[in-house]
Structure formats: C-alpha cells, structure tokens
Computed example of a mutant assay.
Amino acid sequence: MDTPQIAARLVELCRAGQFEQAQKELFAEDVVSIEAFATPGFEKETKGLAANIEKGRQFEAMSEATHSIKVSEPLISGNIIAFVLEMDMTMKGRGRTAFNELCVYHVKDGKIISEQFFYEG
C-alpha cells in the first residue's frame, strides 16, 4: 500500500473504532508511539507493535462507553499522514470525557513506523 491508501484505510478503521485492527494491519513490527506526555500507567514512548497493542487494550479497559468518534479527513505530505481525532467517552472513575488530539503518522516501506499524538493535558 502507498501512503494515500494507508491514510484512507487508517481513517476508515479509526472512524469505526477499530484501533487494534488498524495497528495489526498497518503498523510495522518496530513501530514507535509517542504521546504528548507520560500519564499514570502510560509511558511517553512505547516501542514495538505488541507493546502498542497492549497499550491500546489498557486504554480500552479504562473506558466504560464510547459515545462518539470523529476523524477528520487525512492530510498527506510525502510519507506523513495527519488527522484530528475527537472522542467522547465515559472513563471509569472519571466520568464523561472529551478527547481531542492531532495524530501524526510516518510511513516507510508500506507500513506505519511511528505515530505521535499532540493534545493538551
């Protein structure tokens, strides 16, 4: 897949809330994920596909309900993909929370090799 195809598939899966499927399908084995900052239970940087899938499962376990997921159309520049992700969720022990972040992905050799998230804490 080329970068525009990966972007289209990534957006499709994220809009459907299929984040783990996106990782399994589109991410490289040595993918690196970088959060805006470390939070309790989550490091700032997570290396490797298996570790990133586990991080996603931990985040999912923290949620009670997902009310909506919105993903903007992707922006593509060479091998870089970016989009805005907005989620309205009810989190265990925190209540209903709105997440809004800029997601940036780097593609190499037909796979996502890194993702980075920008948001205010």
Rank of each mutant, 00 (worst) to 15 (best):
D2N: 15
T3V: 14
T3A: 10
P4A: 09
P4C: 14
P4E: 06
I6E: 03
I6C: 02
A7D: 07
R9P: 05
V11P: 01
V11A: 08
V11E: 08
V11D: 08
E12C: 07
L13I: 01
R15C: 06
G17K: 02
Q18N: 14
Q18V: 06
F19N: 10
F19E: 09
E20A: 09
A22Q: 04
A28I: 11
E29W: 11
V31C: 13
V31E: 09
S33C: 10
A36C: 02
A36K: 05
A38S: 13
A38M: 09
G41E: 10
G41N: 13
F42K: 08
E43W: 03
K44P: 01
T46V: 15
G48D: 03
L49H: 05
A50V: 12
N52T: 02
N52K: 03
I53H: 06
E54C: 10
G56C: 13
F59V: 11
F59C: 04
E60F: 05
E60W: 06
A65F: 00
A65C: 08
I69E: 00
V71F: 13
S72V: 11
E73Q: 12
E73I: 08
P74I: 10
L75K: 05
I76P: 02
G78W: 10
N79A: 07
N79T: 09
N79Q: 07
I80E: 09
I80V: 11
I81W: 03
A82M: 09
V84M: 15
V84H: 15
E86S: 13
D88Y: 08
D88W: 10
M91T: 06
M91P: 06
G93S: 08
G93E: 11
G93F: 11
G93R: 14
G95C: 04
G95M: 13
G95R: 09
G95N: 00
R96M: 12
R96D: 14
T97I: 11
T97C: 10
T97M: 14
A98W: 05
N100I: 14
N100P: 02
E101D: 09
L102F: 09
C103R: 07
V104Q: 06
Y105W: 08
H106M: 12
V107W: 00
V107S: 02
V107N: 00
V107I: 08
K108A: 15
K108R: 14
D109E: 14
D109C: 08
D109I: 13
G110A: 09
G110H: 00
K111F: 00
K111E: 05
K111C: 01
I112H: 00
I112F: 00
I112E: 03
S114F: 13
F118C: 11
Y119M: 11
Y119E: 03
